[in-house]
Design a protein around this nucleic acid. Structure first.
Lengths: 246, 246
DNA sequence: CGCGGGTTTGAGACGTGTCAACGCGTGTGG
DNA sequence: CCACACGCGTTGACACGTCTCAAACCCGCG
């Protein structure tokens, strides 16, 4: 059906869009990337895309849905280290030819495209800019984990939550997933937010309520709205620089 | 003097040793890396090696001393995101052909070698394994920041401090900087440790004292000793896997 | 000798965690 | 069609880890 009903739409388009944002790519490079992305595979919520310690012969790109990377603590609690939104690469272990050091699990129903590593090697050999684009993805991903680290080390609960909401707003808008009125789907539970921000579920809840009362954010039925993005960003000194290539 | 008094010693050796640990390199590759490292430049304590936002046409490798990467918070406090020990690359922005997103500053007197980027490009073209080795450095560096993130998000003060001491012990031993008796130089102030671990100086101090009383660590005059490394690692569930390539 | 950076100590404040319970909506099985 | 279980959000009371402020101490150095 693909290529018949929508001759101009390909599953890899969302990834291509992301790569093009980070690096000017030639038509040839664009076509090669586009065609290299396999037919998507669907995942149920809470299904693993990548398992810690396993090698993989493909790059996995989230095409739709929501996922996260995490690590377990000795007491059995889970620390989420990153959220993954459509258009992003699930794991970068392939870059150093090693096995994954974290697991990646879906949070919602999702679809994932894959690019065979040998095939990718051929593409980057012919179009080195594609490699640069991918390395920029990795750099941004690293920047995001550093920013989360900064949140955990130096920001209080209110700033952590609002900073993360600002980040999500920005990243989802890059993928065209924010509506006109500034609202967007955020299919996380408050518990999951807490696992990322190092806060208890209860305290996340109270913090979200503060934001509600401040008129800066509402979060109901998995939909977040930031009526005053400027004010929100000012509250937590959000600067999207770390999410862009410069 | 170099090459005369010590015909077999070159400033780049410590970096070469690190790269070789991560990837088997051919003799040709080893020689190329060795010769590509410039004569070291010396830095005073608290002198910047890399400044946030600036591009650089060289890779900078710490050859001796101690440095850290950091970011400022809006309230003026500093979050240290990584410590850098001899043999490690100061900043990985060169990989994605972009400018540094964090600053790097020395903590002690240090010496830094540089490798010109164009020259490095020539080397990796001829010896792709060198690129893989460098990418593994980057992956380990990323792994370390994730582990710090996990500390900040999920560990209490005692576990944070002991985990960091275990990590330092391990990393310095890789560079041959741990003595027979298990002691090693850790030229940080307790305030700096706190800036990395998201703890106040006062609380770092109290926590170190607990470790002293437990007989697991002493820290006096910039020298740390772990009389019972096993016990120390058990206390904080330290697993060095994230610091090695697999 | 006095100064300054770093470490140590004490006392009290505050942010966040824990525990326990309740409400609400949805899905499921009787 | 009702009864119940379950996941998630919400609320309250209290415990506790860590922060802040302030002062003393130690030691090397000018």
């Amino acid at each position: 059906m693909r290529g018949v009903l929508h001759p101009n739409l390909s599953p890899g388009d969302i990834w291509l869009r992301r790569l093009s944002d980070l690096m000017d790519l030639s038509d040839g490079a664009r076509a090669a990337v586009r065609e290299a992305v396999s037919a998507p595979r669907n995942y149920q919520p809470r299904e693993h895309i990548v398992r810690d310690g396993l090698e993989d012969n493909a790059v996995r790109v989230l095409l739709s849905g929501f996922a996260c990377r995490y690590k377990y603590l000795p007491d059995g609690s889970r620390q989420i280290t990153a959220f993954i939104v459509p258009g992003e690469i699930c794991d970068f272990a392939f870059l150093s030819d090693s096995s994954a050091s974290q697991s990646v699990v879906t949070l919602t129903q999702s679809s994932v495209g894959t690019v065979d590593l040998d095939r990718l090697a051929g593409i980057v050999e012919q179009f080195p800019d594609v490699m640069t684009a991918i390395l920029r993805c990795a750099a941004i991903e690293h920047g995001a984990s550093i920013e989360l680290l900064v949140s955990l080390g130096g920001r209080n609960a209110l700033h952590r939550v609002s900073h993360l909401l600002c980040e999500m707003h920005f990243r989802l808008s890059q993928s065209g997933l924010v509506r006109e009125d500034g609202s967007f789907d955020l299919p996380l539970t408050q518990a999951e937010l807490g696992e990322a921000l190092g806060l208890s579920t209860v305290h996340v809840n109270r913090t979200v309520q503060v934001l509600r009362r401040l008129g800066l954010a509402t979060w109901r039925d998995k939909v977040v709205t930031l009526p005053d993005p400027q004010g929100m960003q000012a509250l937590c000194s959000f600067d999207a620089g770390y999410l862009q290539s410069r």
